[in-house]
Design a protein around this nucleic acid. Sequence first.
DNA 1: AAATGACGGGG
DNA 2: GTGTACGTCATTT
Length: 817
Amino acid sequence: MASDNFEIKGFILDIDYILDKNLNAVIRLAVKSNGKTYEVFDNNFKPYFYFHPDSEIDLLDAENYFKSILTTNDMEKIKNIEIKEMELIGKNIELLKLHTSSTLFVPLLKQSLQKYGTCYEADIPFAKRYLIDKNILSSHMYSFLLEKDNDVLTVKEINKIEDINLNNNILNSFNVLCFDIETYNPNNRSNPKNDPVIMISYYYFSASKTEQKVITYKKISKPFIEYVEDEKQMILRFISIINELDADIVTGYNSSNFDIKYLIERSHALKIDFNISRFKGQTKIERHGMSEKVKLSGRAHIDMYNVVKFIATVSASTDIFRLNSYTLKNVYESISKTKKQDIDKANIFRIWDGSEEERMKLAEYNLSDSFSLYKVFETFFPLILQLSSTIGETLSNVSVSTTGQLVEFLLMKYAYQFNQLIPNKPNEYEIKQRLANPITGAYVKTPEPGIYHNLVIFDFRSLYPSIITSHNIDPSAICTACTDYHESPDGTKFDKKKTAIIPFILSMLLKERLIIKKQYKQDKNSVILGAKSQAIKIISNSFYGYLGYTRSRWYSRECASSVTAYARFYINQVIESAEANGFKVLYSDTDSIAINLENNSREHVLEFVSKYNSKLPESMELELEDFYKTAVFVSKKTKQEKGAKKKYAMISESGAIKIRGFELVRRDWSKIARNTQQLVLETILKQGSVDEVIKIIKNIINKINSGDIELSDMVINTHLRKSIDNYDIISPEVAAARKAVKQGFKTKQEIQEGNIGYIVTKSGESISDKALLEGMAKDYDPDYYINNQIIPAVMKILKELNITEQQIKNLGKQKKL
DNA sequence: AAATGACGGGG
DNA sequence: GTGTACGTCATTT
């Protein structure tokens, strides 16, 4: 038997497991090393879980105990029993550790044992379990000592390589295939049972080459077209291209829910197997919570739509990435600042059935989707990679994770290292209870509405994380009888001496981030450092949320409410202290305060903050955010907004505009209203007064009155969910849609499936009478747009600045006369 | 006001 | 898959 040993240096791209013919679970790694990907097995890891019996039993005689409660069939599944002493949320617990050979047996044994006690860690996916127990980080360099036996590679040893350069190089070592499909859609929504895939485009890039193509089966003379015989050949060709190019990452946009799903279902109809895995194993779609997850073996599938939404969620409080809709077009245009090629999607089937010239446009569009996706991928992948290497989960898992799942994975890893038992997930009843019992939130000081000048904003650096680390907030540190403790303002005591994993992990992350930030200052162009810093920030900021997250394994109402109680305590302390020192605090939210400098000098306020900082716990710090020239504060009054909400706009000294809480961009307002509102706000900020604003509004009203505004700016976008016949109340959009159907402009189906845009025209009595679909409308009703769009939009801002609606209305009348 | 339902992205 | 389990907004009751 030929067998030899060798060593490779590389990183884990993906991990899963196989069941051999005896159902034994064997870990399988995809190791990427020097441009090659190895399929590597690890035989030295077996499934296990813990059991804690309800009744007192003789643990030393556990085998007989199990014999008395389990069938012989179940008993055969237990390979070994160990007695373990561990800690569960601060309390010692004695457990039985049950070893088995197959992952299949774990849920079966758990089922049989449930009525006799509690099973722990019986729901940790095997591949995750492996990374946790072996303390191996995905997307991190390791040296793998391998043994080759009959072409099968097994791993003997894995050792971490602490080489920053090697780790950094990972960023450029992926073969990435970005793809997009077009489908035939004669009935609006393509149905994979009948409607073929008509084009598949891809944009491929790796360290050594770039390639882009559209595969299709109707004649189109363009150099980027690869012509094949039919749909079946097209799909087969796509699969073989993925293999030939040896893609490590296959990425799409909403591809889990659409492209991949459609290709799988379509292939089924064509009686072919759609499999784009690298190693043996199916390509399938699994439910991952509410979304779907594509499972490949040996490659990572990354759905950039998931990633984009994730980033949008975690950066919700910043202006960096806030869009009203996360379509590929919007996202691409936002990151690249260039327009994306567009097409009327409802028309794709007609284009396909039409001339070659038209199809050429479709092919170009198809390719532009893959190219845009590549840009989106390029923008966000560094962060995904750093999230992956920071917590150690695989790229494909990170790409479908919520922040809670990222934190949970880290906690599970450290729980293992600290001999702590991983708490079970809550059942539905507990979830409901937690949900019904929310945690008191942050403190918000609502501002007096108006325009202010000369502001300074300070905020606590990483307030929640630093509160957790400074006060040892962790469910396992909660104590009643301890002597050396932190007591939160709402009365929970945390043992100072207890080594608890949440503060432990957090202080490690915060320390690392400080180092990274320092390096980043020296090397502002480093994509890796920027992404790493962002990744750590995202993870650290998620611990508080995780403590109060209803499905959390480490849920602790006491901890979560202690964090917010401390936050309220500290921010109020700053406010009081600032006011005692003669500063006017205009506004405060959670971790920040806005001070109106008035006659105070900058030096004076900076001095105050520095003095204040010296009194704070070591890891806490109040930082200067920025100086602001002008700020507009508006009080919240609308029904939707419960409680005190941020609603302000301000402009910093450098001219950066920060807008919070204004409904500036909503689909159901016309573009003219949105643009005018934005302009009004910006003008107030830049001019520092409302004088110029009056002129602007007057000008817009005049333009509207004289019919100078393009119809496209007047379109109000909305969408109908029901069939147009089923409405009791006829809103303008329903009226417009009905007219369009009656006159044969659109079919009922077209209306029902997509977005519709309508314009309020001159002819008719009610607004519904006047409403016509975009394309049918020949004019617009100036009165409607002035009174129902422009005035309400600008009044949202102006009413707080002592300008009445009548004043604005008079602007239009003056000109008319 | 509370409960229920639909949507997001994709064509 | 050692299965999972959203957040928001509109409409209806």
